[in-house]
Design a protein around this nucleic acid. Sequence first.
DNA 1: ACCTGAACACCGTTCAAGT
DNA 2: ACCTGAACACCGTTCAAGT
Lengths: 223, 223
Amino acid sequence: MPRSSATRPTRRQREPLSRERIARAALALIDAEGLEACTMRRLGASLGVEAMALYHHLPTKGDLLDAVMELLLDEMDMPTRAEAPPLQRVRRVMRSYWEIAVRHPRAFILLAARRFNTDRAFRLYEQLLEAFADAGLDAAGSARWFRLIGGFASGAGMAYAASSEAVADATSLRLEHAPDRIPYPHVRAVAPYLRVQNLDAGFEFGMDRLMAQLTLELHGERR
Amino acid sequence: MPRSSATRPTRRQREPLSRERIARAALALIDAEGLEACTMRRLGASLGVEAMALYHHLPTKGDLLDAVMELLLDEMDMPTRAEAPPLQRVRRVMRSYWEIAVRHPRAFILLAARRFNTDRAFRLYEQLLEAFADAGLDAAGSARWFRLIGGFASGAGMAYAASSEAVADATSLRLEHAPDRIPYPHVRAVAPYLRVQNLDAGFEFGMDRLMAQLTLELHGERR
DNA sequence: ACCTGAACACCGTTCAAGT
DNA sequence: ACCTGAACACCGTTCAAGT
């Protein structure tokens, strides 16, 4: 679909540019060819337009990447109070964050590395922190559990993205594909369980343990 | 120290280039001016040499970044069996990984985003997985706990790096500095606890909970 | 063996100009 | 109001040439 408009950039018959349309094209480009392929010139070309036309809708490349982040965050599950009990809401939000890494391994690093500065990002935080509060955590506890659970989700997503086939940077040794050539016995034994196919189960395992520990703490078993 | 050789690149009196010397200069450049400032041209200049001279020691920029990663991994604590009980070893390794984010916030993303493909990285994995095995985990359990604890450490490090002053990309809204302007009550309440000064305590909190859950599991309280 | 100079094919971004 | 063309100051990398 972006292809068709790209192949013949007939000036008259294309819909006008917009921040959102540009961001969608950028995400498609990143998914298909990687973050480093997403240049203003190539993005313009994929929209049948000169690179400089983009600057009419986005003042800088940083704003473009922020727009792509918003698009990614739009894919997240944001359950409301009515939909599920607090800890289930936390879990669904985190699960959907992880799923962004699975669907967009080459774009996920934007979420992990860039500051969340858009209103949409703050709305997401609000929803999540509301769930923590509803579960019974105070502000300090919310901050800590947010860092713990969110840190895990982010790190797990990055690990998925890094070991995904879609990401470039492949070099000689590859943990997943040539474990027999690794001269370290523990690494060799564990490597099969770190394959990309097992990462989703690994994410669920991690979330299980984190939620178990949080539940324990909320019910006053410690401290 | 890199400065002095940079200011006057008198060709005769400088020590010869090497992979390691170049990598050290690159890390210094990243620490001082950010990852995007670490270009072959500017790195060469900081060593009193043309950019092209670097290609004699490192075939490509990716190899340069791998060399920087090795330097970072060199800073990690790699306690041996003799030094501490297994879970303490896991904890020390993870703690030192986190400390790399604190010392090198602008370089840390290399560890989080690039594949670990050097021998040094595998040696680190081996040490860590040996500790998991010594603690009583089988290969599958080691993989899962490695992903959980490592994912948290990586995500926490990225969060530290992203909220560190040293990283560019600052835009209008800033969670830490203008919490009063955020129209979301839970975010506003939690924001003070997410300040960069509190992140180290947050890391320790997370590690405490993870180790507690792991200990519980090893002692057969669940499953 | 190690470094340089010039060049190539790219970048993001500015600015004056076109419609 | 929206887009283009040419230009500027950069990139990583190649290659022939210098010492």
